[in-house]
């Protein structure tokens, strides 16, 4: 599903070269929940950006859904992101001038869906994250945890194949973090592939696969077989 082989990413300035990723190889299969940990500057975000087609890579091979993404132009990459990838950001990245309904609507409009279908999807996903009653509220009227749940609804509304989460709990307190994590686990159990970058080892352990990036390389690969997670709606709310 996601196949990176010997991916390198070099940031070049006039004086220095920085190798953000070196011979980075990773396979992610459909339905995986992969957590990515690593120290600051290790290349986690670069990996996530490349995986999410937010950034290009310097060398190597990257197949996403069996498509060689290095051959895509900017417009095709945008379309690919819109149709197949959902993003969850550490800072939620909701658009402050739009209410929750309109925030979830943004990627759906890029998808070109008709108004009725967009409305159904928005209401369904806001309902799924427990915020249907607040769809006319602005992001600033919500708590951090609620904002992140809106961001999750936005990411899921396009029915993506992958969900890329960049420190999704980084700006949340422990209780909110657990709630969001439970939501992600629930989403994963319903079939969406998730790659989550996190600093929190406890949360990372809850993923079905755990990888660590160090100096731009996958330094550790660990598969978690069993874990007991409560994904009931009460735990999510």
């Amino acid at each position: 599903m996601l196949s990176m082989t010997n991916i390198s990413k070099v940031f070049q300035t006039d004086e220095i070269q920085t190798h953000a990723l070196r011979d980075f190889s990773l396979q992610v299969n459909e339905g995986d929940f992969v957590s990515v940990t690593g120290p600051s500057g290790s290349g986690k975000t670069t990996f996530l950006n490349i995986a999410g087609l937010l950034e290009t890579f310097t060398s190597g091979s990257f197949l996403l859904d069996d498509i060689n993404v290095s051959g895509l132009n900017d417009k095709q990459r945008s379309r690919f992101r819109n149709e197949k990838i959902g993003f969850i950001f550490q800072s939620f990245n909701l658009i402050p001038d739009l209410n929750l309904f309109d925030n979830v609507d943004v990627p759906l409009r890029y998808l070109g869906l008709k108004g009725k279908e967009r409305k159904e999807r928005i209401e369904h996903h806001l309902d799924m994250v427990g915020l249907a009653s607040r769809m006319k509220h602005l992001p600033s009227q919500l708590s951090g945890g609620q904002q992140q749940r809106v961001a999750i609804a936005r990411a899921l509304a396009t029915h993506p194949r992958f969900l890329l989460a960049d420190e999704p709990t980084g700006n949340l307190d422990t209780h909110m973090a657990q709630s969001v994590m439970s939501l992600l686990e629930d989403i994963n159990t319903k079939g969406t592939t998730i790659i989550m970058v996190t600093h929190d080892n406890e949360l990372a352990k809850r993923a079905s696969r755990k990888i660590q990036i160090k100096d731009g390389r996958v330094s550790e690969l660990d598969k978690v077989i069993d874990h007991d997670i409560d994904v009931s709606p009460q735990a999510i709310a």
């Binding site: 417009k75 149709e83 993003f87 990245n93 658009i95 943004v106 890029y110 998808l111 936005r154």
Partner: peptide, 12 residues
Amino acid sequence: QIGTRRALGASR
């Protein structure tokens, strides 16, 4: 916000 829109699928 513009970067986010791009990430969500907006073309240039």
